[in-house]
Each structure stands twice: as structure tokens, then as C-alpha cells.
């Protein structure tokens, strides 16, 4: 597999850029009465350069998957804009949308659910190629073999005819990664790719993603709720809270000098010797995650923030403020 030459995007322009991106889900009663909306993605600004690996970290329900799906074009954004290679995603239709789908690979959380149970590995990997008209069959088989080798499932003949339930979780996820790579994308969106795998194979899979990302100079958006897995595998971290990005920083800067109280709390939980606190389901800082249907006014973190300033934090929404080289935080403390 050879990386495609960068197209369209002007030099210096990021591969992916989102500005004030919003995806709101309407809540309806009886299928037509509007009763409100869930603001799963609510004003996200982010950029991702070609060949860059970034992590999106946030607790469960903060809108990470919704963000990924919006960037994949599976949800239509209800506001704002996302551009890929300079093209606004919302305006892609027909052939252009299909071409975009070939340029973005998707790795899901649950590898077993991500593979059709009635297709063997060969067939599952052949599907994207058929959809995109890759012919002849021999060419498809060559690419399937190459992709399987790439993800460490060599010799390909061994897994070729197997069904998902005959593979281990790690192997399944490798097949999913192979499928995400088979159309030679420019960007991979990996939505919690290891959270459902055994602890023993998580590192392997993360290392595999990182290696592939580097070798092919792919952009990687690695979505996780677990800050402990970002250090060696990404270049930059975006901290997401309540449908927004509250802090962005190079990985080292974030881990050493977090600027947003939420990021600080996440890190503190990491340092906590009690492993139960590093577990996923427990909200890391005390208190409830914010409701996305009725987010708190002002700073969304203020009900849980130990530094919250009455009269400011619960009234005014903090903008993203520069706090260092490539480092921003949305917190009034940094003003």
C-alpha cells in the first residue's frame, strides 16, 4: 500500500477542520412532536493535519461518538462546518460523498458487532472494494491479502475463510482495521478501538494503529475515555466535555501542565493509586456529567468545578484561550 499523494488541500491547510460544528438530535414524542434536543456535539472546533495523530478524550456520553459519526458523514451536522481537504462535508453528495467515504477509514468500538456475522473475513474485506468498484477480482484479492498482512494477520490464508465468531477479539479488531485501510484512506477515525478488548491485546492494537498511521502518514483521530492510553500513540490531545472541546494541547504539554480543571481532574484520577478510579464508568471528577439536553449555563463544567467563580463561570461561556504553543483551554481561570 502506498499513501496517496495529498490532494486538493492547499499547503499549510489542515486535512480536517471543524468550526463550531454542531450535531443536535431532536427528541420527539409520537414521532412528530418536538420536545427538545440532545446537543451531542455543540460547537466543536478542531483541526487535524495530514499524518497527525490526535486523541479525543472525554467521559462517557460527552458526545465523542457523535462527533466521530458527524465527521464520517453518518450524521448531518445541524450547525457549523467541517471541511476535509478544503471541501465542506455538508455539501458532499453522490459521487463526491462516496469518494470522501473512501478517504476516511472507520474503526469501531465493538469489533464483533462491526463485522457482519454472515460474512467470512475475505468477504467482509471485499465489500468496500466492491462498493468502490475495484476490479478485477484478482486485484481485490491482492489488496485483501496486503491489508491482512499489514495488520499482522499473515499468512492471509489462515483467516481468509473464517467467520467473526471464530476469531479472537484482537483478531477481529485487526480485521476491522484492515477493512478501514483497504480503500487507502487519508484519515482514520478510531472510536474507542480497544475499550472492549482484553487488557492484554490493547497495547498491541494501539501500537498497530500508531505504526500504520506513521508508515502511511495518515491522520488519526483516536477517540478514548482513557487518558492513560494517549501518551505513546498520539501527538496531540483534545479534551471533550459536554459536547465541546475544552482543551487542546500537544500530548506532553497536556499530561504535564493541564490548563483546564476538567483535564486536571482526569489526570489526577490517572495518578490515583486506586485502580477503581481509573475505571471507565465512574465519573472522574465528583458529580454528574452534564445533561446534553439541558446543558448548564455559562461554563458547562461549573457545577463540578472546584475553582468555579460565582457570577462568572455560571453566567458566561468561556472561549478557547491560548495558553501556550498549540495549547488552548476554555476556562476563565486562563483569561
Amino acid at each position: 500500500m502506498s499513501p496517496r499523494p495529498a490532494q486538493a488541500a492547499a499547503p499549510g491547510e489542515p486535512l480536517l477542520a471543524a468550526r463550531d460544528l454542531q450535531t443536535h438530535f431532536e427528541l420527539r414524542r409520537w414521532g412528530f412532536l418536538r420536545t427538545g434536543s440532545v446537543r451531542a456535539v455543540d460547537g466543536v472546533d478542531l483541526t487535524l493535519d495530514a499524518g497527525e495523530a490526535a486523541a479525543v478524550v472525554g467521559e462517557s456520553g460527552c458526545g465523542k461518538s457523535s462527533l466521530a459519526r458527524t465527521l464520517l458523514g453518518l450524521h448531518r451536522p445541524t450547525g457549523g462546518e467541517a471541511r476535509f481537504e478544503g471541501q465542506p462535508l455538508a455539501r458532499l453528495r453522490g459521487a463526491a460523498l462516496k469518494a470522501y467515504r473512501a478517504r476516511v477509514g472507520y474503526v469501531q468500538q465493538d469489533p464483533y458487532g462491526a463485522l457482519p456475522p454472515f460474512m467470512d473475513v475475505r468477504r467482509a474485506l471485499e465489500e468496500p472494494l466492491i462498493v468502490h468498484g475495484v476490479a478485477p477480482r484478482a486485484e481485490r484479492e491482492r489488496r485483501i491479502e496486503a491489508a491482512l498482512e499489514e495488520v499482522g494477520l499473515a499468512p492471509a490464508g489462515e483467516v481468509w475463510g473464517k467467520y467473526p465468531h471464530q476469531l479472537s477479539g484482537g483478531q477481529q479488531q485487526r480485521v476491522v482495521i484492515a477493512r478501514a485501510l483497504i480503500l487507502r484512506p487519508r484519515m482514520i477515525l478510531a472510536d474507542e478501538p480497544v475499550s472492549m478488548l482484553d487488557a492484554s491485546v490493547r497495547v498491541e492494537i494501539l501500537e498497530l494503529l500508531r505504526r500504520i498511521q506513521r508508515e502511511h502518514r495518515l491522520a488519526l483521530l483516536y477517540i478514548t475515555h482513557d487518558l492513560s492510553t494517549v501518551r505513546h500513540y498520539t501527538d496531540r490531545v483534545l479534551v471533550m466535555y459536554g459536547g465541546r472541546i475544552v482543551e487542546q494541547a500537544p500530548v506532553e504539554a497536556l499530561l504535564e501542565r493541564p490548563q483546564h480543571p476538567y483535564a486536571e481532574a482526569l489526570l489526577a484520577a490517572l495518578a490515583d493509586p486506586d485502580p477503581a478510579n481509573a475505571r471507565r464508568e465512574r465519573p472522574v471528577p465528583g458529580g454528574e456529567p452534564p445533561s446534553l439536553a439541558a446543558p448548564p449555563p455559562g461554563c458547562r463544567f461549573h457545577p463540578r468545578c472546584p475553582y468555579a467563580m460565582a457570577g462568572t463561570c455560571d453566567v458566561y461561556d468561556p472561549p478557547a484561550l491560548g495558553v501556550g504553543e498549540g495549547h488552548t483551554a476554555a476556562c476563565w481561570l486562563r483569561a
Partner: peptide
């Protein structure tokens, strides 16, 4: 998930 994946690859 596999249907979401199918949509994602077009």
C-alpha cells in the same frame, strides 16, 4: 455496528 461500518465505506 456492521451496518454503520457499511454506510461509512459507502
Amino acid at each position: 455496528g456492521y451496518i454503520e461500518a457499511a454506510r461509512a465505506y459507502g
